[in-house]
Every structure is written in C-alpha cells, then in structure tokens.
Lab assay of single mutants.
Amino acid sequence: DIIVVALYDYEAIHHEDLSFQKGDQMVVLEESGEWWKARSLATRKEGYIPSNYVARVDS
C-alpha cells in the first residue's frame, strides 16, 4: 500500500472529497492526475485528496 502523510489541513469542497488535518496518514487507493482517492487511517473514510497536499511515507 502507498501511505501518505498530510502536509497541510484540507477542508473538503465537494461531497466526494476527504477532509484531513496536517499529520494525518492515508492509504492511496487510486492515483489519477492531481486528485487521488484515499482512505484515512484514523477515520477509515474514503474520498478524493489533492495530491500536492500530501507526501509519501517511506516504509
């Protein structure tokens, strides 16, 4: 799995977006363009995230 960590807070604009806080970790489910589908490890919610707001966690 690709794990990313939030670099900034993000408040969902559309209902399919995923809100998150700086430091939150998410599993990337699908990478396509600038918006990635991800699942929050904390809340288990899924939605689209702006890929420029996150960084990959080296395992």
Rank of each mutant, 00 (worst) to 15 (best):
A42H: 10
H15K: 14
D9H: 07
I2Y: 15
S51F: 09
V28N: 03
Q25H: 15
V57E: 06
K45Q: 12
T43K: 04
S19P: 07
D9G: 06
D1W: 15
G47F: 02
W35P: 06
E11L: 11
I3P: 03
G47E: 02
L41M: 10
V57Y: 10
N52C: 13
L41V: 10
S59D: 11
Y8W: 10
D24W: 04
D24L: 02
I3W: 08
I3Y: 09
S32F: 13
H14E: 07
L7N: 03
L29S: 05
L7H: 03
E30Y: 10
D9S: 09
A55G: 07
S59G: 13
S19T: 08
K37W: 15
A38S: 04
Y48R: 12
S51E: 04
A6V: 03
W36K: 06
K45W: 05
I3C: 06
L29C: 06
Y10C: 04
T43N: 10
I13A: 10
Y8M: 11
E16Q: 12
V28Q: 01
V5A: 04
I49W: 00
Y53T: 03
D58R: 07
M26K: 00
R39F: 12
V28R: 01
Y53M: 12
A6C: 07
H15E: 15
L41W: 05
A42E: 12
K22D: 01
K45E: 13
E30S: 10
P50T: 02
G23N: 05
L29W: 06
R56A: 07
V4M: 05
R44D: 13
S40A: 10
K45C: 10
S32T: 12
S59L: 12
Y8T: 06
M26A: 00
E34G: 09
E34I: 13
S59Q: 14
W36E: 01
D1P: 15
Q21D: 06
H14G: 14
H15G: 12
Y10P: 00
I13V: 13
T43P: 02
A38Y: 02
N52A: 14
V4D: 00
N52E: 10
Y48V: 05
S32G: 14
Y53D: 01
D17G: 15
S32M: 13
W35N: 07
A6G: 07
S19N: 06
G33C: 08
S51K: 15
Y48L: 10
A38N: 01
V4P: 00
V5D: 01
V54L: 03
L7K: 05
I49H: 01
D1A: 14
S59T: 13
V57T: 08
V57S: 08
G23A: 03
K22A: 10
E11R: 10
T43R: 03
A6L: 01
D24P: 01
V28I: 14
E34T: 13
R44G: 15
D24M: 05
H14Y: 10
E16K: 10
S59E: 11
L18N: 01
V54T: 04
E31F: 15
Q25K: 15
E31Y: 14
K37M: 13
E31V: 13
L7S: 02
K22L: 07
P50W: 07
G23M: 03
D24C: 04
E11Q: 13
Y53H: 09
M26L: 13
A42I: 12
K45T: 07
V28T: 02
P50S: 05
A6E: 00
I3G: 02
A55Y: 10
V27K: 08
V5W: 05
Q25D: 02
D58M: 11
P50V: 02
S19E: 06
E30A: 09
V57I: 14
I49N: 01
R44K: 14
S51H: 09
E16N: 14
A12T: 04
R44L: 15
V5I: 13
Y10V: 02
L41I: 11
D9P: 07
Y53Q: 05
H15R: 11
E16Y: 14
V54C: 06
E11M: 11
K37Y: 15
A42Y: 08
E30W: 10
H14K: 11
F20Q: 00
A42C: 11
E30C: 14
A12L: 02
V54K: 02
L29Y: 07
L7A: 02
R44M: 14
S40F: 06
H15P: 15
V5R: 06
A12N: 04
S51G: 08
A42N: 11
A42W: 06
I49T: 01
Q21Y: 10
S51Q: 10
R44P: 05
R44Q: 14
S40Y: 04
S51Y: 10
Y10K: 03
K22M: 08
Q25V: 15
D58T: 12
M26G: 01
W36A: 05
Y53W: 07
R56N: 07
R39T: 07
L18I: 07
A12S: 09
V5N: 02
A12R: 05
E46W: 07
L18Y: 02
K37I: 10
S59I: 12
A38I: 06
L18A: 00
K22F: 05
M26P: 01
R39A: 08
G23E: 03
V28W: 02
A6I: 01
R56S: 07
E31K: 14
I49C: 02
Q21T: 11
I13Y: 09
F20T: 00
I2H: 12
D1Y: 15
L18S: 00
W36Y: 14
S40G: 04
D1S: 13
I13G: 08
L41D: 04
A42P: 05
V54G: 01
Y8H: 08
Y48P: 00
I2F: 15
H15Q: 13
V57C: 11
K45Y: 06
H15L: 14
V28P: 01
A12V: 02
Y8N: 06
G33W: 03
S59A: 13
W35G: 04
E30D: 13
A38Q: 01
I3R: 07
A38H: 01
L18M: 10
K22R: 10
V57R: 07
Y53I: 06
L7F: 03
A42R: 15
E11N: 11
D17H: 15
R39P: 01
K22Y: 05
P50H: 08
S59C: 12
P50L: 07
D24K: 00
I13P: 07
E30P: 03
V4N: 00
E16R: 14
V54A: 03
L29N: 03
S59F: 12
Y10L: 03
